[in-house]
């Protein structure tokens, strides 16, 4: 599906990500994680051809990205960027533009397009905001509107750059549940996640970046157990387990742990029980 081969890319003044080879797992939720400035967003932008590639390449369905026509690519990949313009269009009209790649003669959106928009607005819980200008929405509402637009595109691959930004805690969890639901519907979701907790709890696969390079990729469990997350983020990870066996993750700073308990034993995360 999406494959990066020895990819080095940036924004025209030297590469930000270096020599990355990675293939998105089909029908899975992949989290791209890493400390600030590690190149997470750049990797995602490279996958849709919005960076200048210095070496290597990106392939979609085995075909180099540059050989894809813009509209055909938009039918395959929907992208939710981290920062956007404050459009003054109504929510409905903006989300409707998610159907732009399907626009054919006589260049009018069809009844089916409008029905798709209504369905996705409902799924995102913002049906009542349909006539409101996007610029007047709160950060969270805007995020939902843009996500609805990405979903309306009907692409099998969804790339999301920090989708939980601007959302409150419960909305963040709802969104992560929604991503799981989309994966269950057969979509491939790749999301840059800032919150390691979300990544560990919801993602099937993980791509760990450090200083623009690929540190490790694999299933979330493999990466957690390898201890590499603790090294890269400089934290101790504690697995908390409730009486039903469900796991949660807690973090503490490595420095604080050292001060309180002496040199931390490196390696596997510590497993704790939740007292109920």
């Amino acid at each position: 599906m999406i494959r990066c081969e020895n990819l080095s890319a940036g924004y025209g003044e030297g590469a930000v990500i270096h020599d990355i080879s990675w293939e998105a797992a089909e029908g899975r939720l992949t989290a791209i994680v890493g400390p600030n400035g590690s190149g997470k967003s750049t990797l995602l932008k490279s996958v849709i051809g919005q960076t200048s590639v210095e070496r290597g390449g990106v392939y979609l369905e085995g075909k180099p990205l540059k050989q894809w026509r813009h509209k055909e690519m938009a039918k395959q990949i929907a992208y939710l960027p981290q920062s956007r313009n404050d459009a003054s269009l109504s929510v409905f009209r903006m989300v409707l533009h998610g159907r732009f790649p399907y626009l054919a003669f006589p260049r009018r959106y069809t009844q089916k397009d409008e029905e798709t928009v209504i369905r996705e607005l409902k799924r995102m819980g913002i049906s009542e905001l349909r006539e409101k200008p996007v610029s007047e929405l709160s950060g969270g509402e805007k995020q939902r509107a843009y996500l609805a637009m990405a979903l309306v595109q009907g692409a099998p691959v969804l790339l999301l750059d920090e989708p939980t930004t601007y959302l409150d805690l419960s909305a963040q969890m709802e969104l992560m549940e929604l991503l799981r639901q989309l994966v269950a519907e057969g979509k491939t979701v790749v999301a840059v996640l800032h919150d390691l907790n979300h990544a560990l709890q919801y993602a099937d696969e993980m791509v760990l970046l450090e200083n623009g390079g690929l540190k490790q990729c694999g299933t979330s469990k493999e990466i957690l157990q390898s201890g590499v997350l603790e090294d890269v983020f400089r934290v101790r990870i504690h697995i908390l387990q409730d009486q039903y066996g469900k796991e949660y993750y807690g973090f503490s700073s490595e420095k604080r742990m050292r001060n309180e308990t002496g040199p931390a034993a490196s390696g596997h995360p510590k497993r704790l029980q939740i007292r109920s």
């Binding site: 919005q50 938009a74 313009n85 732009f100």
Partner: peptide, 21 residues
């Protein structure tokens, strides 16, 4: 005739190109 393309451009370059413009 190109009003839709012009309108999509107001969403900003990143969003416009992600919907295939």
């Amino acid at each position: 005739l190109l009003e839709k393309e012009l309108e999509v451009l107001t969403l900003g370059e990143t969003v416009a190109s992600s919907v295939g413009l």
